[in-house]
Design a protein around this nucleic acid. Structure first.
Length: 688
DNA sequence: CATACATGAATTTTT
DNA sequence: TTCATGTATG
């Protein structure tokens, strides 16, 4: 049996069947790229490739989960389970857990998330100013994303601010090494260093995969690209790979992604097969024409023009609003009007904007109208204080030298270990070049601290050790749940929540989050195969094993997903999603394209802003409203709002070509066919 | 001097 | 929404 031909168009087919060499699939918005990836996986299995030798790399856990889910539907659960579907970072963790020792990393290293890292940076830079520390963090991350180490960063620093940042970076890296901790950027950089420095490891990893698929290549940064190259190798023996991406949707340049990678790909791999996917299965003609017109203003890396067999649909509407409040009211009115139609749900609507604070007015008006909504990119479940508290404990179990985790766990809930005690302990640890945890049991410590403080520290150390011991042995969902509940009771965490919050309802909500979290971990220990990417194993696990991957497998345990609510989202967070009815809000100069007004925007930034507009337009399936503000707050006073230049670029005035009778017939037939093929998709069974 | 409250400003975000 | 700064009060 072959991969069902009726479900793929010729270009998709070509991409799916190109197995031997490298290929680059230029997937326009809504052109079915995930379908191509998944079908290609099926095709590879059918050709006899072991599922465990196929790697599909994505950027987000969500994308990885979706991909595994869709693969499961096509190739069955058994093969899907063995596939390596993971984020760049999760793959990096995997490599480092296996081979980290080869570059001087303990196998139980900790992974610091952005918040912990900020703490380390603040500390290393000796400053209490959060904003400054955050700028350092940003600068350091950009350097790391460009593949610069501390020495290179020092050389690259071109201003006083940057020179300070480079000094801070050096101290941060020293501390991370002492903590046996890595940050998210290191999860890419260190595996790359491993492959570059260690011939044996390189060969082993290069032989590991028979085919590598990379989603959203336009979002890769320099280091990720190098990691990819190191993984697939060079020359005629290179592992075949399938890179999928769209230069027109590259919107993460500001965090180090470089479109240069797309440019280099054909040079680095001369055999590269270029396959553009231009047929769009999402939007109506009016919407697509607007999108094409806008993006046509950008210089093109690869020529590509979206088309669809759907009809023109409704024209794109531009509305002018007096203020943000007015804009929100009109959005509400539109939602209410359309909702009156049969079959239109709240989940069919999205309001997209450039910057988070723009959500405010919409939230207010939606609440007033009693329309439920969700704000994407709002604080995730795992960012909540209570969850982060518990994660600190888990990290400490994995790696007792993780000092940031130590500090958090030792002080929440309060247990008689105060500032002064920790400062003394910290000084002592720094002098003797050990971690805080190690310092805690030193025989010379009691000379420095009062008896009560010492006792509290030792008690804490004993607690950690005991939990550590049990976490390594208790296996499986129910037993782990019991262990966790016992531990929470032991440290009095529920009480701690009620103490710290005078509104009882809020404390109760937090405790309920904690219970959900316990549930979540227990399920993972039970070996339930998960939706999240990054989880590879399916037999029952110990708490310790699960804790080891905690900061990477953490993803949105979103329950709001299936609920019927309106979506509010930034344009960035909307990429990859689609809705029948979309409103782009605040499409004004200064906002989109973003700019301060004082300094002129560089061509590169403008192009990225334009791609952002393009991404926004192409999220819409059936109707699109573009809204612009007549007046806009700027500092204290209201200033006149200037409609974004992108509105003119949509060329909405140009009359849509009239649809003649023959065209209409063709469209209806196509719509019917599309409906038929999306409802029942033949499933090929790989003969592996 | 420290705490409490109000006011104002705000790129974009994942791991 | 959050975060930081400023004012007023104890």
């Amino acid at each position: 049996m072959t991969v069902a031909p009726t479900t793929l168009n010729p270009a998709q087919m070509k991409a799916v069947h190109h197995l031997r060499g490298p290929c680059l699939v230029l997937a326009g918005a809504g052109s079915g790229k995930t379908r191509v990836i998944v079908h290609k996986i099926a095709r590879l299995l059918q050709a006899g490739t072991e599922p465990s030798r196929i790697a599909a790399i994505t950027f987000t856990n969500k994308a990885a989960a979706e991909m595994r889910e869709r693969a499961k539907a096509l190739v069955g659960p058994r093969a899907a389970r063995e596939l390596v579907v993971s984020t760049f970072h999760a793959l990096g963790v995997r490599m480092l857990r296996e081979d980290g020792q080869r570059i001087g990393l303990k196998p139980n290293f900790s992974i610091l998330d952005a918040d912990d890292l900020l703490g380390v940076i603040r500390d290393a830079g000796g400053c209490a100013d959060n904003a400054l520390a955050r700028r350092w963090q940003w600068t350091i991350s950009l350097w790391k994303n460009q593949g610069l180490d501390v020495d290179a960063a020092e050389r690259a620093a071109s201003s006083d601010d940057e020179r300070v940042a480079a000094r801070v970076m050096r101290r941060v890296q020293e501390r991370l090494a002492a903590y046996q901790a890595v940050d998210f950027d290191d999860l890419i950089g260190l595996p790359l260093a491993l492959l570059q420095r260690d011939e044996e490891a390189r060969v082993r990893w290069q032989q590991r995969f028979a085919h590598v698929l990379i989603d959203e290549v336009q979002d890769t940064n320099a280091v990720q690209y190098e990691l990819l190259r190191a993984l697939v190798g060079n020359g005629p023996d290179a592992t075949p790979f399938t890179a999928v991406g769209d230069d027109d949707q590259s919107i993460y340049g500001w965090r180090g992604a470089t479109i240069d990678n797309l440019r280099r790909l054909p040079q680095d791999y001369p055999a590269l097969e270029l396959i553009p996917l231009e047929q769009n299965y999402r939007s109506t003609g009016h919407i697509l024409r607007a999108a094409n017109a806008v993006i046509a203003q950008n210089p093109k890396l690869y020529e590509k023009k979206l088309w669809s067999e759907f009809g023109d649909g409704e024209p794109v509407r531009v509305i002018e609003c007096d203020s943000e409040e007015h804009e929100a009211e009109r959005a509400v009115a539109r939602i209410q009007a359309l909702r009156a139609q049969a079959g239109v749900k709240l989940a069919d609507f999205a309001i997209l904007y450039r910057a988070n604070h723009q959500a405010r007015a919409f939230e207010q008006k939606l609440r007033a109208a009693q329309i439920p909504y969700k704000v994407s990119g709002g604080t995730s479940f795992f960012d909540r204080t209570e969850i982060r508290d518990l994660c600190a404990w888990l990290r400490l179990l994995v790696n007792e030298d993780d000092d940031p985790a130590f500090l958090r766990a030792a002080t929440t809930p309060r247990r008689g270990i105060g500032h002064q005690t920790l400062a003394t302990l910290g000084e002592f640890a720094a002098r003797s070049r050990t971690s805080l945890f190690e310092a805690l049991f030193s025989p010379s410590l009691p000379a420095l601290l009062r008896g009560r403080a010492i006792e509290a520290l030792h008690e804490f150390g004993r607690e950690v050790n005991e939990l550590q011991h049990r976490a390594g042995h208790v296996r499986g969902g129910e037993d782990v749940r019991a262990l966790l509940m016992q531990w929470l009771a032991g440290i009095g965490y529920e009480q701690h929540l009620y103490d710290g919050e005078d509104r009882e309802k809020l404390a109760a909500a937090r405790w309920s989050n904690v219970l959900d979290f316990v549930d979540w971990i227990a399920r993972r220990c039970g070996g339930e195969i998960t939706q999240e990417g990054g989880t590879f194993v399916s037999e029952p696990q110990t708490l310790l094993q699960v804790a080891q991957t905690i900061s990477v497998i953490i993803s949105l345990a979103e329950r709001g997903d299936e609920q019927d609510v309106v979506t509010l989202s930034t344009l960035h967070a909307a990429k990859g999603l689609e809705w029948p009815h979309v409103m782009l809000a605040g499409v004004n100069e200064g906002l989109l394209p973003f700019g301060s007004g004082d300094e002129p925007i560089t061509p590169e930034r403008l192009q990225e802003e334009r791609r952002l507009m393009y991404v926004g337009i192409t999220r819409a399936r059936r109707t699109l409203v573009v809204s612009t503000l007549r007046r806009r707050k700027r500092g204290r006073e209201m200033v006149a709002g200037v409609p974004s230049r992108f509105i003119a670029e949509m060329k909405l005035d140009a009359a849509a070509p009239k649809e003649d009778a023959r065209e209409r017939l063709r469209r209806l037939r196509a719509e019917l066919a599309a409906r038929a093929s999306s409802s029942s998709e033949p499933v090929p069974s790989p003969s592996a």
